[in-house]
């Protein structure tokens, strides 16, 4: 269970407030107008921004004092998720053993993830030789084999065409079925329905009175 309570974060004249709960193993779709703070929410959860007040609990444990790598989070950005000079397999392996060569067992686990996500056989390709959708699924494979339970996705499929999108969405279902919890920023209602996701609408930030 992820509990976000009374989380506050502000710039000079705007203040974002977030408050929600998400049971483990669920998918949460975050929607809202641009500038409403959807990406800010993900950055706060991942530890790239520090909130002014509030609490983030995972299974009752506070994440606030933790660095990004200590939190059980994998985050997927809109682009630049893969290292261009590493093969798809080597990129995925970073999720399991970032500082060592993978063991035989880990290699088998990774190959299984590639199969599950529909990118089996692409292990040795460089990212430049993959389509946009395939690249994102390689990044998802990295999230899948990583021990981190929570996956944050910031409009990861906004650059994909309709077919790749469907493939990527079914990849998310695979992640969910294997026990991951997902938070997804999206503009597409169809995605929310296809995923059977919970919905968290973020409203425009409170505007502080001008000084």
């Amino acid at each position: 269970m992820l509990q976000v309570s009374e989380l506050r974060f502000g710039y000079a004249t705007t203040e974002f407030r977030f408050d929600f709960e998400l049971p483990a193993g669920r998918i949460l779709a975050v929607t809202g107008p641009s500038g409403a703070g959807k990406t800010t929410l993900l950055n706060l959860l991942a530890g790239f921004e520090t909130p002014q007040s509030g609490q983030i609990l995972w299974s009752g444990e506070s994440w606030l004092g933790y660095s990004p790598k200590q939190r059980g989070i994998s985050m997927l950005f809109q682009s630049h998720n893969l290292f261009d000079h590493l093969s798809a397999a080597a990129n995925a392996d970073l999720g399991l053993s970032p500082n060592r060569a993978p063991t035989a067992e880990q290699v088998a686990q990774r190959d299984q993830a590639f199969e599950d996500l529909g990118i089996g056989g692409l292990q040795n390709r460089l990212p430049g030789a993959l389509s946009g959708g395939q690249q994102q699924r390689v990044a998802l494979a990295r999230c899948l084999i990583s021990p981190r339970p929570l996956i944050l996705l910031d409009e990861p499929f906004s650059a994909l065409d309709q077919n790749s999108r469907a493939d990527a969405l079914s990849a998310l279902k695979v992640l969910q079925s294997q026990g991951k919890t997902l938070i997804l920023v999206t503009h597409h209602w169809a995605d929310i329905e296809a995923l059977g996701a919970d919905h968290y609408p973020v409203e425009s930030p409170a505007v502080r009175a001008a000084l």
Binding site: A46, H80, F83, L94, P98, N99
Partner: peptide, 22 residues
């Protein structure tokens, strides 16, 4: 890019691996 640096943070890359990869 910032994404690249954050990715390295999140993956917990050691200083040497960060240098080599990024």
């Amino acid at each position: 890019t910032l994404e690249r640096q954050r990715l390295a943070d999140q993956l917990g890359l050691s200083a040497w691996r960060r240098f080599k990869l990024v």
